[in-house]
Nucleic acid binder design. Sequence first.
DNA 1: CGGTATCCGCAACGATACTG
DNA 2: CAGTATCGTTGCGGATACCG
Lengths: 127, 127
Amino acid sequence: MEVSWQPGMKMDVNAPMCPSRGVLEHVTSRWGVLILIALRERSYRFSELRRHVGGVSEKMLAQTLQTLERDGFVLRDAQPVIPPRVDYSLTELGEEAAAQVEALGRWTERRTEQVLKNRERYDEARP
Amino acid sequence: MEVSWQPGMKMDVNAPMCPSRGVLEHVTSRWGVLILIALRERSYRFSELRRHVGGVSEKMLAQTLQTLERDGFVLRDAQPVIPPRVDYSLTELGEEAAAQVEALGRWTERRTEQVLKNRERYDEARP
DNA sequence: CGGTATCCGCAACGATACTG
DNA sequence: CAGTATCGTTGCGGATACCG
């Protein structure tokens, strides 16, 4: 797979020469990962999602959702009712992305204990 | 999968309550992703890796490699020769992680064109 | 409720210089 | 060659206030 970069290429991640890096960073972004995984299970309202994905600020949630919507991963359904109700769900493309990400997430959960042990060994070998 | 967070839990990603988030962020970090994918293909020397993964500074490469080594994903083989030669490769655990990440990377490459079109549509629908 | 707008601190990051 | 050290900047991300 192509991750290389030649001196003539723009290094900006959003540059036309290597746009896939930018897409990858959206998908693997701090909150993007967790949002995709959450939405795979079911659709969520804004505040509901905010509670479920703990630790995310309103700003970052809104920002990340917009990015994911723009990329075509997330569908935003704003219903014209009072009080406002907005539901977020995955598009077909988003479902594909989320499946990949969730696989990675599940693998990580399985191996976390091992990683924690590795860190201990690493640290105690270095004063 | 468990991404939720309860008010009593520390929100710090490195907190003991939800350590898997921290592991996930190492694996999905900006340069971590590209390094894992690169090392899956073969082992690399430091500068070689720096050239192959374009746009990464020495500092970030060293830092990310250390993080991945500490987690037990990357093996560092420093040979006592002059000039110094250090080879980086994947551990068995790292190979597993890299396989997941590469799957995500390949999917992203396949879908990048579609995402670019989605962005265009999104942008032109909003002045 | 579901956002946007604004401000701002701080960690992340890049560039550079230096060392074994 | 393979880093570490230092420094300057930036942009991420949290807090707050306000709006439809």
